[in-house]
């Protein structure tokens, strides 16, 4: 163990002594591979310095907290400035390549010693590479999740089309979390606006299976409990035939072919008439 500690110290001070060479070589290689697009020279220098310092800290202490912190920060920066996965991966691999060459130049003549030196620094580099990749993938996943959530709210708009008339144009797939959100938003809006008619338009939904039908029935029932009337519009001829075959009973639901028919009916319920000037 004592011998390994001594070797570790030797390797660390060897790398530290060559830090300037390593950084220069790193920038040169990355530029030659055209991997530093979107970064100016200062940023490149800083990034190279950060990577090397973090790596040396981990190697010296055997503690990867610094690598974890750095990876997360770097991934955030990279994702924000649009740096791709290729560069993130090449960053670490390039450093590894340079250290490899440096070690070979210094110790290559004694095979046994060279092997021991490699064993000393390479696993740390691999582990740090793992942290960086993981952080990058997680960062991307986080963004995908945020977008999904944003889309979910976007896709359940409740629009007030007239005094006491709300409209909900549904688009895409009605999966359960979205339906739940729709129900909450809709019921709250009915209360807030004291609406009496809700038009649910399903022309943007590609298919109505029994789950979607069940959601619709529940939405209509809940709306009625609040004293509002619910009209379902946009039932295409294909969907109508499919629903009949499925055996779904929508006789308790008021339906109209188009949104405009639905609006006309809403006016009727409210005792309103549209007249030309």
């Amino acid at each position: 163990m004592a011998k390994n500690d001594a070797l570790l110290r030797e390797v660390v001070s060897f790398f530290k002594g060559n830090a300037e060479t390593i950084k220069k070589q790193w920038i040169k290689t990355m530029q030659a591979r055209q991997l530093l697009m979107g970064m100016d020279v200062d940023q490149v220098k800083k990034e190279g310095e950060r990577i090397l310092n973090t790596y040396l800290e981990c190697l010296e202490t055997g503690d990867f907290t610094a690598a974890e912190t750095y990876s997360k920060e770097y991934a955030d920066r990279a994702i924000q400035s649009g740096i791709g996965s290729q560069q993130i991966i090449m960053d670490m691999l390039t450093l590894e390549g340079i250290l490899n060459q440096l070690t070979y130049d210094e110790y290559g003549k004694e095979a046994e010693k060279w092997h021991q030196v490699m064993e000393t620094w390479l696993p740390t580099s691999d582990t740090m590479f793992g942290f960086v990749s993981k952080a990058f993938v997680e960062g991307r996943e986080k963004i995908a999740k945020q977008q999904q959530e944003a889309l979910m709210e976007l896709s359940t708009p409740v629009v007030r089309v007239w005094d006491k008339v709300l409209s909900v144009p549904l688009i895409g797939t009605l999966d359960s979390p979205r339906t739940q959100l729709l129900m909450e938003v809709l019921l709250q809006r009915i209360v807030d606006t004291q609406s009496r008619v809700v038009i649910v338009d399903i022309s943007g939904i590609p298919g109505v299976d029994t789950l979607v039908a069940n959601h619709l029935v529940r939405t209509v029932t809940a709306t009625r409990l609040l004293g509002a009337e619910c009209i379902v519009t946009g039932v295409s001829s294909q969907i109508a035939q499919t629903l009949v075959h499925l055996g779904v009973d929508l006789s308790g639901i008021t339906t109209r072919a188009s949104m405009s028919d639905g609006l006309a009916m809403a006016f009727e319920i409210l005792n309103l008439r549209v007249v030309s000037k």
């Binding site: 999966d175 590609p206 001829s237 294909q238 969907i239 035939q241 499919t242 499925l246």
Partner: peptide, 30 residues
């Protein structure tokens, strides 16, 4: 969702009409 889209695409490519496409996609969805 993916399976529904795939089956609808194949049915459409094979020449099934719009109503049958919807029927098949709905059955698969169930």
């Amino acid at each position: 969702v993916a399976v529904r889209q795939k089956v609808r695409k194949l049915a459409s490519d094979m020449g099934f009409g719009a109503v049958d496409q919807t029927r098949i996609a709905t059955a698969v969805s169930e």
